[in-house]
């Protein structure tokens, strides 16, 4: 609806060109909706003034000429002066009025943003910890044994506010899901909070929005907004320990992953892999991407990533382990079972 309104303005066409899973021109979240409405209002008001100024300029250009160049007062000068004065007051009134409108709109939007959860509903609690270059996601509950840990993917129930505590383990990062809300920085040693109120079911893409090093561009986060029932199903699935490997190949992969280099950094719940410094792999095959949006989560992606992580994402902290072909097949086969 709104988008159609803006079609004549080239800038807005450009912006709406970004529509999709990573777009500011979306109101999938309460917060992004507020920001977008304010943006549209600003756009309309400033566009009107822009058009008016240009129109006056053109009019003035065309009405130039006349016989006023000798400095003598011409006839009808008094009438013109009076109408000019009227125009001046009208113009000033319009400027003051619209500026006040924008100021008020900004104020109310800001208040709106500050109270994203006005009904004080129980919120989903998430700790989001940024690392170079991936996202560590921890859901916490009153009963800590129900806590969930995953990486590079956030699931949110639609219509339920989510309180996200933002932390960083190394440098300053920024959390931005344009479809849902504005940006918020993740600063080492501090905790910043942001409350998201997703309204529309869908898949969105977040991106680190503060330059954080070589692989800043490969630091994406999938945000999946789903119905509360689907979300509960997802929660229950995440709480399950990793499934036991069924095939001989997967068993070989399990043996390698849980006893060798992988287990030093990665965690797979229910196994001996208890590392905490790299993404949790308990349900890695259920996620959409590998390495924070670098590769798609499928067999080809797994092979590419495990065999040569530095080729896919140069400079990241996953070392080249140097697996032989048999080990590579086995490890990939096992990871594929971790739904």
């Amino acid at each position: 609806m709104r988008r159609r309104l803006l079609l004549p303005i080239p800038l807005f066409v450009l912006v709406s060109g970004c529509a999709g899973i990573q777009s500011v021109s979306d109101d999938a979240g309460r917060e992004s909706g507020l920001i977008w409405s304010l943006f549209v209002l600003f756009g309309i008001v400033t566009a009107i003034f822009y058009v008016a100024v240009i129109a006056f300029l053109i009019a003035a250009y065309w009405r130039r000429g006349g016989s006023n160049q000798d400095g003598l007062p011409d006839e009808g000068g008094v009438t013109r002066e009076r109408s000019l004065r009227t125009a001046f007051f009208l113009w000033t009134g319009a400027v003051i009025g619209s500026l006040s409108l924008l100021a008020l709109a900004s104020y109310f939007t800001d208040r709106g943003l500050a109270s994203v959860n006005p009904e004080n509903k129980p919120m989903v609690g998430i700790d989001l910890v940024a690392n170079q270059w991936w996202w560590d996601v921890r859901y916490h509950y009153d009963d800590p044994s129900q806590n969930i840990r995953t990486a590079n993917e956030i699931h949110l129930p639609a219509g339920v506010p989510a309180m996200i505590s933002l932390k960083s383990n190394d440098v300053i990062h920024s959390f931005w899901v344009p479809n849902l809300a504005g940006k918020q920085d993740l600063i080492p040693g501090r905790i910043n909070d942001i409350v998201l109120m997703p309204r529309r079911i869908g898949h969105y893409r977040a991106q680190c929005a503060e330059y954080c090093g070589l692989q800043h561009a490969h630091m994406a986060l999938d945000v999946i907004v789903e119905s509360p029932a689907d979300f509960q199903r997802w929660e229950a699935a995440q709480r399950q320990p990793a499934p036991a490997p069924a095939t001989p190949l997967a068993q070989a992969g399990y043996a390698y992953v849980t006893s060798r280099e992988c287990s030093t950094c990665h965690n797979i719940a229910g196994t001996n892999a208890n590392g905490t410094v790299a993404p949790d792999l308990t349900h890695v095959a259920g996620r959409r991407t590998i390495a924070a949006g670098t590769l798609p989560m499928n067999r080809a992606g797994l092979y590419a990533w495990i065999a040569d992580p530095q080729g896919a994402k140069p400079g990241n902290n996953m070392p080249t382990v140097g697996l032989n072909a048999d080990e590579l097949h086995a490890v990939a086969a096992y990871l594929e079972t971790l739904k």
Binding site: D143, P144, S145, N147, R149, P241, A269, G270, N274
Partner: peptide, 12 residues
């Protein structure tokens, strides 16, 4: 001894 810990954390 299980419910006052995050999952599996009590094992270590």
């Amino acid at each position: 001894g299980v419910h006052s810990w995050p999952a599996d954390a009590w094992k270590i």
